[in-house]
């Protein structure tokens, strides 16, 4: 019983990392894409420039996915399933949390920054890179969350 519970907890951690990162990115991209569509209705030529800004909050979803994928590799889901104790499962669950939660929040805020960036590019397309830099500042904290999750997952002894 305890063994299976451990496995379930680890998978729950992986699932949450993928889900929360995905939710964050979906919301973030949603904000930016709506603004970008508005701009495109005026000037379709800005598509290329805006695409990058709109895609930026998408990375958190990927980070969440990576966290999830590493947990799945760790528990051997692609090969021989490892028997986890309850506590090992709990450890993996918590290890996945930094990336899951940091990605959720940072993607949403990055989406807002990128939305403002889209509005700026509408007026001053030559300054689009500066808008990107501000967006990346928000992303860094998702990266930090990812790093901690990576270290916790990879260096954990099972």
């Amino acid at each position: 019983m305890q063994e299976t519970l451990g496995l379930a907890l680890a998978i729950a951690g992986a699932a949450l990392a993928a889900i929360l990162g995905g939710i964050g990115s979906a919301i973030g991209i949603g904000y930016a894409a709506q603004a970008a569509n508005g701009v495109l209705s005026e000037d379709p030529d800005k598509f290329g420039k805006l695409l990058i800004l709109v895609a930026l909050p998408g990375t958190q979803g990927i980070y969440g996915f990576i966290g999830a994928f590493l947990v799945l590799i760790k528990i051997g889901i692609f090969g021989e399933l490892i028997q986890l104790t309850f506590y090992q499962g709990l450890q993996l669950f918590f290890a996945a949390m930094p990336v899951a939660i940091a990605c959720l929040v940072s993607a949403i805020w990055q989406g807002r920054v990128c939305t403002a960036g889209v509005e700026m590019v509408a007026k001053r397309p030559e300054e689009s890179t500066k808008a990107l830099i501000y967006g990346v500042m928000v992303e860094f904290y998702a990266v930090l969350g990812l790093i901690i999750s990576l270290l916790a997952i990879l260096l954990m002894k099972i």
Partner: peptide, 18 residues
Amino acid sequence: SYVRLMALGLVTGVIGMA
């Protein structure tokens, strides 16, 4: 702040693996 280099590098590899 430069630790991001490691994270981004690892991300590429892991997605590639996936």
